[in-house]
Amino acid sequence: MLKIIKVTGDSLSPVYNDGDFVLIAKIPVCLFKIKTGDVVVFEHPEHGQLIKKVASISTQEGTLFVIGFHENSMDSRHFGAIGKNDILGKVIWHIKKTA
């Protein structure tokens, strides 16, 4: 299942910027298996719906370590790894904001 999401904030800047749209493939979709380097949208209990890049995957624990590109990004470096079940989808198309 596919879904369009609007990006807010700049922690993935300059690749993903505030106002960009992304098309995500909702999990589970075998065709879109998540791997390191993918950008995913997930639900965090405190911070809500977030978008970050997958830095590493622990298949044993079923968790992913996600980070932003920005040094001050609020990500797994602050709140720890996220569970696979928290992932809402993987970005399969990025529509950049145009002037």
Partner: peptide, 23 residues
């Protein structure tokens, strides 16, 4: 086109925020 749709449908958002409230 998506921006126009967004104005009417209000797509879900995903935050790429940094140290609150970065961006």
């Amino acid at each position: 086109l998506l921006e126009k749709f967004d104005q009417h449908l209000a797509f879900d958002t995903a935050k790429a925020h940094c140290d609150i409230p970065c961006g």
